[in-house]
Amino acid sequence: MKVAILAGGRSSEHDVSLKSAAAVRDGLHRGHHETVWVQLERDGSWRTEDGDPVSLTPGGGLLGADVAFPVLHGPFGEDGTVQGLLELLDVPYVGSGVLASAACIDKIVFKDLMRAAGLPQVDYEGLHHARWREDRDTALASLERLGLPVFVKPARLGSSVGIVKVTAAEDLAGALDEAFTHDPRVVVEAMASGLEIECSVLGTPEEPEVSTPGEIELLGDADWYDYDAKYAAGGMNLVVPARITDEQTARVQELAAEAFTRANCHGLARADFFVDGDVVLVNELNTMPGFTATSVYGKLWAASGLSYPDLVEDLCRLALRRAEAAQRYSF
């Protein structure tokens, strides 16, 4: 296959994306596939590895590639925007489509969908910036039922960017002000106890496969799974398999598959949970998680018997099959 790897992007996760994309390229090369590097710069321009601007024509494909692998994290890449562009270019692409990508990156929309489906999850409240500006006291009162601590999060950022853990009521307004500098929509989540468990999902909405779960073990002075814990050396340790019972493992895998299907994801997602005894709570789905060979998504599949080169090849072939199946419909 000839695979166009989309790397970088306009979001705050630009540098993380570059590392993920480089690992994907290496994995595809190890599988003897050809790659074309397309770098999405912070200013929104697209360039080849030689620095030449990329010209896009609707229906005209992308640099002769058979399939695109958008290794993009966060807004302007993981949120349905690039997915919609690739649809217009008529290029098969790895990962979820426009609707699932947009729904899963928006923590409020995703949680509302899971609540409608009856899946157990962390209690939460969504706020819009306009409501916050108009009546701060009423907005703060609506959050009291969540108790303390709470986590204040921009609705559509990843990698824990902009997230604040609030342990005192007098700090909540400041945390909301900070979150609203990143996004006009903010979610406030109740504190969840137990272990942080993650598993990787691969496949189609009809037939999702779920990896062995892993456990996030925080190291050093980390109080919660923030940006430094995720990316700094010595911040966390991934324990595989997770130190949970067979019954808890089965429940995590069941919920991961159901959330993937309910959101109509395709190709891949990382599902995150809190597990405390018999209680298993869905936290979120990430439709384009960190993708280096040492990232959680790939490591969990490696522990489940699927090598990194085989994983990235399988994802490309899933994308091609989805594009072929779509041609059977007239829309």
Rank of each mutant, 00 (worst) to 15 (best):
L143V: 02
E284Y: 14
A100G: 08
H14A: 00
A173K: 10
V188C: 11
A117I: 08
G51E: 10
A222H: 15
R262L: 10
E196C: 09
E207I: 05
I244S: 01
P120A: 06
A23V: 05
T249P: 04
P75G: 05
T292F: 05
L62K: 00
G126Q: 05
A116K: 03
V91P: 04
E258L: 15
T294M: 04
A302F: 07
T292G: 00
Y227Q: 05
R321N: 08
E209P: 01
G31F: 03
D221T: 13
P70E: 00
T204G: 02
G97T: 15
E178H: 14
I108L: 04
A269K: 05
G44D: 04
N237G: 09
D52E: 15
E34T: 09
L148Q: 05
D183V: 00
S20Y: 01
G126W: 06
F274C: 10
T81N: 14
G80Q: 09
L320D: 08
S96A: 04
I163E: 08
F331L: 12
G60A: 07
D50M: 14
K107Q: 03
C316L: 13
A22W: 10
M288I: 12
P58Y: 11
R25Y: 03
Y227H: 09
D183W: 03
A100L: 06
P309I: 07
T167H: 06
L89S: 02
G214P: 03
G44L: 10
H129W: 15
I163F: 11
R322G: 13
G290C: 03
S142I: 04
A116S: 11
W46K: 00
T261D: 10
L63C: 06
A179H: 02
V54Y: 06
R10Y: 06
